[in-house]
């Protein structure tokens, strides 16, 4: 298991790239004058979870549950 600073050493740039990619996709949607969609709402909910420092160490699980079809 990696130490905390090793996690950032190894994954900071990759995460930066993935976040920029999400930002670019949302920009693309806005430039296309999208007027909202359930999928977009889900993405923004996911970003809310990610923006919380204290969201817990199961963010991936939370996001997968968010994107899971209701039973």
């Amino acid at each position: 298991m990696l130490a905390a600073d090793q996690v950032l050493d190894q994954y900071f740039l990759e995460s930066r790239c993935q976040l920029i990619e999400i930002a670019a996709m949302l920009d693309r949607y806005d430039r296309a004058n999208g007027d909202g969609d359930e999928r977009l709402t889900l993405l923004y909910k996911a970003l809310e979870i990610l923006s919380e420092r204290g969201a817990g160490d199961n963010r991936a699980e939370q996001l997968l549950n968010l994107f899971t079809d209701p039973e």
Binding site: L13, E14, E21, A24, M25, D27
Partner: peptide, 17 residues
């Protein structure tokens, strides 16, 4: 360039802009 520069999707975004 993977990770540290521009991606193909973002390059096309800028071409469109």
């Amino acid at each position: 360039y993977p990770i540290t520069k521009c991606t193909p999707k973002r390059a096309v975004d800028m071409i469109e802009m």
